[in-house]
């Protein structure tokens, strides 16, 4: 039985202020299809997903879905911390919780427009329980003045923007060591359909 899909808060493909979309966004509308077994089934990951050695910064849970959260690797010549691998993989626990201990990323310059700087963010790549739930996104930090002028963040309809900003939640951190932030993610239902299907 199809579920109704909630309000679409995803960005459009074409968002000209983010210049890379201009030649990569499809010009034709998407073709809508009912979810098939291709989308309602999905890959099953091992409980201890062993990637490529990046596990030192992660806390392992016990069940799906899998989240991967590499730090945005940059190519400008700021010094990198040799002890920081920049990515981690974690399985959410039975209640869907995850926890990642990392370093707080900084803003970095990019070539989209003159004097362009991306706001600090952490990339998240998620697999849910169904292929339809696959999501790659970015988490941002509260109070960052760069958010107001970042084309990638601003591409999200206004109703969705606050969903990408973590809340400061000190008790989620480590006493005397690490600030804590809380960021909940919601993935669509595997059988949710777009309007009109």
């Amino acid at each position: 039985m199809a579920e109704t899909r909630p309000v679409d808060v995803h960005p459009p493909y074409l968002y000209p202020d983010y210049k890379s979309t201009r030649l990569r966004a499809p010009a034709q509308p998407l073709v809508r299809v009912a979810p098939s077994p291709l989308e309602t089934a999905g890959p099953v990951f091992p409980k201890r997903f062993v990637g490529e050695s990046e596990a030192d910064l992660t806390t392992w849970g016990t069940s799906a879905p899998l989240g991967e959260n590499p730090h945005p690797v940059d190519d400008h010549d700021a010094p990198l911390d040799p002890n920081f691998l920049g990515k981690g993989q974690v399985l959410t626990d039975d209640e869907g919780r995850y926890r990642v201990v990392t370093v707080k990323p900084g803003a970095y310059p990019w070539q989209n427009h003159p004097f362009g700087w991306r706001p600090a963010h952490i990339h998240f790549s998620l697999f849910g329980n169904a292929y339809a739930q696959r999501l790659i996104t970015q988490m941002f930090f509260p109070g960052d003045p760069l958010l107001a002028i970042d084309p990638i963040f601003q591409s999200v309809p206004e109703a969705g923007r606050k969903l990408l900003i973590a809340d400061l939640d000190l008790e989620q951190g480590i006493e005397g060591v690490a600030l804590g932030y809380r960021w909940d993610l919601v993935v669509r239902g595997p059988r949710a359909t777009p309007m009109g299907v």
């Binding site: 909630p6 960005p11 996104t137 109703a159 990408l164 919601v186 993935v187």
Partner: peptide, 11 residues
């Protein structure tokens, strides 16, 4: 119904 987390580019 909670809103789904918006997508962002992989970069």
């Amino acid at each position: 119904m909670p809103k789904p987390t918006p997508s962002q580019t992989v970069g």
